[in-house]
Design a protein around this nucleic acid. Structure first.
Length: 230
DNA sequence: TCTCGACCTGAC
DNA sequence: TCAGGTCGAG
């Protein structure tokens, strides 16, 4: 968030505590937490395309598989390290190829999304989304196969510099309903509730919303572990 | 607008 | 059985 001014973390830290005292235990527990951005839009988009209804270990394996289609950067200990491929390279991969590499049903959407992106102008198209109104950005991203509201918000926040954007995944939903919307605890997240939670967090934390989101995620991880133990 | 179920795969 | 969702149908 303050990527060029590490010293201002203290400032943001104090502001975050003031805006959301309920997050204090989590903020104190993770003093090194940072919201890293901007990430590369191409890599971010396709990585999140692997993430839906999936576990982190498998997401990681799939992203590494995608990377193998990119150019070799260097060779380390007899193993080639690849740069993440550009959109055009992913567009040439076939569904069956990805199926064979364990992508499951995402094998169908990833190359199609890549072809559509290439058609829209490739990397340049993605980069210029930074300058567009957030509503347009979400609409554009959601019109890609495999991208819904949650992924669109992840891409907007992590890769397109939109800190006013708060992706609501299962963890944020559970944490936010527990802390801020007790009536919704245990209910299913709908589009309307999604927007309400996003608006609430943006209102409460302003430009630090994306950061607060990271701590809410952690809040739920802790509670999730407690629930499993008990 | 909301609720369901299906969807690949593999860790637990 | 379920995971840092999406999509189509009713």
């Amino acid at each position: 968030l303050f990527r060029h001014r590490e010293e201002s973390w203290g400032e943001a830290h104090a502001e975050l505590l003031k805006l959301g005292p309920e997050l204090e235990p989590y903020i104190e527990a993770l003093p090194g937490l940072r919201l890293t951005r901007p990430s590369d839009p191409v890599e971010t988009l396709f990585s999140f395309l692997c993430s839906s209804n999936n576990h982190v270990p498998r997401i990681k394996a799939m992203v590494e598989q995608l990377a193998s289609f990119g150019p070799v950067m260097t060779n380390e200990a007899g193993r080639n390290l690849h740069r993440f491929p550009e959109i055009e390279a992913i567009a040439q991969v076939s569904e069956s190829e990805l199926r064979g590499r364990g992508f499951g049903y995402r094998a169908a959407t990833i190359p199609v999304a890549a072809r559509e992106l290439a058609h829209r102008g490739g990397r340049e198209y993605l980069e210029q989304l930074r300058l567009r109104p957030l509503a347009d950005v979400r609409k554009e991203l959601i019109s890609l196969p495999g991208v819904g509201p949650k992924l669109a918000d992840c891409i907007a926040l992590f890769a397109l510099d939109r800190t006013e954007c708060v992706p609501i995944d299962t963890h944020i939903w559970q944490a936010a309903s527990r802390l801020y919307f007790p009536d919704w605890q245990g209910t299913q997240l709908t589009a309307k509730k999604y927007d309400a939670v996003t608006a609430f967090i943006v209102n409460r934390f302003g430009r630090l919303a994306g950061w607060a989101q990271q701590y809410l995620f952690y809040e739920n991880l802790l509670h999730w572990r407690e629930r499993r133990v008990s």
